[in-house]
Simulated assay, not measured.
Amino acid sequence: MICTETFVYIHEPKTGGTFISTVLDKIHQLKISQYGFPGKIIPLQFCKSKYGKFKHYSKTLKHVTCTCIPKNHKHKIILASIRNPLDLYVSEYHFGWWKNKRYWSCYQELPGFNPLKDYFPEISFEEYVRLFNPCKQSIKTLSEKEVRFGIGPFTKRFASYYCQDPEILLNKLNQSYTTGIHYQDVVTDIQRNLFDIRFITTDNLNCQLYNFLINQGYEKADIEFILDLDKIRPKKSKQRKEAWQDYYNPDLKSFVLEQEAVLFDLFPQFSGW
């Protein structure tokens, strides 16, 4: 999380946050950036520049939700970056946090884990996607004639990060496992419950971040470097050779489109592929 004089940046994992954080550190002249100072991660870094006070939270406060924003910053606009769920699955698969043995006991409860346990975590991408989508929730279409969509893990994470009452909303989403709810109700509830957020997307991150900062009063001369900046990845992240589109066959793509349908409706630009 980063708090500036005019906005707060919320860093959802694997959505271009290292790029945005590094850029904001540079613009506000933070002298010891966690991304440029190997071996040291400071819980809170603070500085002042011509754009006012700047606080960069890291460690346990690096990936926090909108509900964790300090009281004296809650009135500010929120900046958040999002990623196409199809791309996000590939990124999370390769980043590999889920391979950590401390999580394995939790996987025992997943219905798809038992067939994989002999060679886990060396599982294929498709096995990974289906393992973490263990149930197809009963969300009905407006016509109520058929069960259509499920709620995938990234839809749930989106709600927990950006909704004002995530527990209430997530409880309602979880109830859909057994009771069934109107699909449009899910989308409408999330839209109504969102904080005041300006979303930018990873597929056009440089330009959208630049435009956002211009609208916040930042001077062109201080931020135009953003437009030509290459990708900045976390230190442990490796650049993959294949495009994320190469990981999907038609059946797996359809499966993800169904499981994360709420996100694709909230951000229809992601469903074009």
Rank of each mutant, 00 (worst) to 15 (best):
Met1Lys: 00
Met1Arg: 02
Ile10Ala: 08
Ile10Glu: 05
Ile10Met: 09
Ile10Lys: 06
Thr15Trp: 00
Gly17Met: 00
Ser21His: 03
Val23Asn: 03
Lys26Pro: 01
Gln29Asp: 07
Gln29Leu: 09
Leu30Cys: 06
Tyr35Val: 01
Pro38Ser: 11
Gly39Met: 05
Gly39Ile: 09
Ile41Lys: 14
Pro43Glu: 13
Lys48Leu: 07
Gly52Gln: 01
Phe54Thr: 00
Lys55Glu: 12
Lys55Asn: 08
Tyr57Cys: 04
Lys59Cys: 07
Thr60Tyr: 09
Lys62Leu: 14
His63Met: 09
Val64Cys: 05
Val64Ala: 02
Thr65Ile: 04
Thr67Pro: 01
Thr67Ala: 10
Ile69Pro: 00
Asn72Tyr: 02
His73Tyr: 14
Ile77Phe: 04
Ile78Lys: 07
Ile78Ala: 08
Leu79Arg: 09
Ser81Pro: 03
Arg83Ala: 11
Asp87Trp: 10
Leu88Ser: 05
Val90Asp: 15
Ser91Gly: 07
His94Ala: 03
Trp97Arg: 13
Trp98Leu: 08
Lys101Ala: 08
Ser105Trp: 05
Cys106Gln: 13
Cys106Arg: 14
Pro111Lys: 09
Gly112Asn: 07
Phe113Leu: 00
Phe113His: 05
Leu116Ile: 01
Phe120Ile: 03
Ser124Gln: 03
Glu126Arg: 15
Val129Asp: 04
Val129His: 12
Leu131Ala: 02
Phe132Val: 02
Pro134His: 11
Pro134Leu: 10
Pro134Phe: 11
Cys135Arg: 12
Lys136Gln: 13
Lys136Trp: 04
Ser138Tyr: 01
Ile139Glu: 04
Thr141Met: 12
Arg148Ile: 04
Phe149Asp: 00
Phe149Pro: 00
Gly150Ile: 00
Lys156Tyr: 11
Lys156Met: 13
Phe158Ile: 06
Phe158Asn: 07
Ala159Gln: 04
Ala159Met: 04
Leu169Asn: 08
Leu170Ala: 08
Asn171Leu: 10
Lys172Val: 04
Leu173Ala: 10
Gln175Pro: 01
Tyr177Glu: 14
Thr179Pro: 01
Gly180Asn: 02
Ile181Thr: 05
Asp185Phe: 11
Thr188Val: 15
Thr188Pro: 00
Ile190Leu: 14
Phe195Lys: 13
Asp196Met: 06
Asp196Gly: 05
Asp196Cys: 11
Ile197Gln: 14
Arg198Trp: 12
Ile200Trp: 03
Asn204Cys: 11
Leu205Asp: 13
Leu209Ser: 05
Phe212Ala: 11
Ile214Gly: 08
Asn215Gly: 14
Ile223Met: 09
Asp228Ser: 15
Asp230Thr: 11
Lys231Tyr: 15
Lys231Ile: 11
Pro234Ile: 04
Pro234Arg: 10
Lys235Asn: 11
Lys236Trp: 02
Lys238Glu: 15
Ala243Cys: 06
Trp244Leu: 06
Trp244Arg: 07
Asp251Phe: 09
Leu257Arg: 04
Phe264Ala: 06
Asp265Ser: 10
Asp265Cys: 05
Leu266Asn: 06
Phe267Arg: 11
Pro268Phe: 12
Gln269Glu: 15
Phe270Arg: 11
Gly272Trp: 02
Trp273Ile: 09
